[in-house]
Design a protein around this nucleic acid. Structure first.
Lengths: 124, 124
DNA sequence: TTATCATATGAGTAAATACTCATACGATAG
DNA sequence: CTATCGTATGAGTATTTACTCATATGATAA
């Protein structure tokens, strides 16, 4: 993701006038910039295999970082980085107990998205 | 995403034995590697503001590239690149008519995911 | 044919990203 | 106190990515 200048179009590729009605209709259906960013942020948070595995492991139970790291067979630091990210976007919450930190999925919408998403990838 | 070596753990950070039962349970809940990748691929396809805007514009109507480009206020080539990507992951289909190419959202699951996702970002 | 329109695509690039290792931090144990 | 355990985090890095411009391709028109 770089420039997106668009101020002066040096694009030789511009076409003749697009259909005004069709463009207006498309603009109406299109989600606005800010919600598009928010929605993309949500989906991007789910768009990584490690995070998918983490979130599915945390869907129905609390797990501490140590056990989660073992289950994932990854480096503890990699797991913690992803958990920090998932905390930031508020998909997981955590609770400290002694030296341990117990994480869990904290978003019912995400559970629903997972179900629908899995339905999509398993069935056609 | 680089190495992920894990063959020999030079990680000094490994902890004492994790709880075997908790790890096993987490592994059971966790989606397996291949479906995790597939699910992540799907969500990643939705995880970009431009693609969110494109898909929402194509959700209930066919639009040709020219009109879509105008609606998005982006370069034609950027739009075409994203459409090629969305074709590859089979979220959109298209139809040629004369010089035009009409695209549309070709995945009912994705419509559902959009609705749920929007519900998430607009409401809590 | 040649010219032009609508779209697709290749190469290059800056930013984002998912890991790495090393180390810092907070809590408990000795 | 010091040491250690469990976790968090900073810096570095290779890969991915979403654009850029230039050009190629396919279809129609003159």
């Amino acid at each position: 993701m770089s420039a997106n200048d668009l101020s002066l179009p040096p694009d030789s590729n511009t076409c003749t006038e697009p259909d005004a009605a069709s463009v207006a209709a498309a603009r109406n259906r299109m989600v606005a910039d800010a919600p598009a960013r928010d929605l993309a942020d949500l989906f991007r948070a789910l768009g990584d295999p490690t995070r998918v595995r983490i979130l599915s492991a945390l869907a129905d139970a609390e797990v501490c970082v140590n056990d989660l790291t073992a289950a994932l067979e990854m480096r503890q630091s990699a797991v913690s980085h992803q958990l920090a990210y998932l905390r930031e976007v508020r998909l997981v919450s955590f609770r400290r107990e002694g030296k341990h930190a117990y994480y869990r999925l904290d978003d019912d919408h995400v559970r629903g998205l997972f179900v629908q998403g899995l339905d999509h990838v398993t069935n056609g």
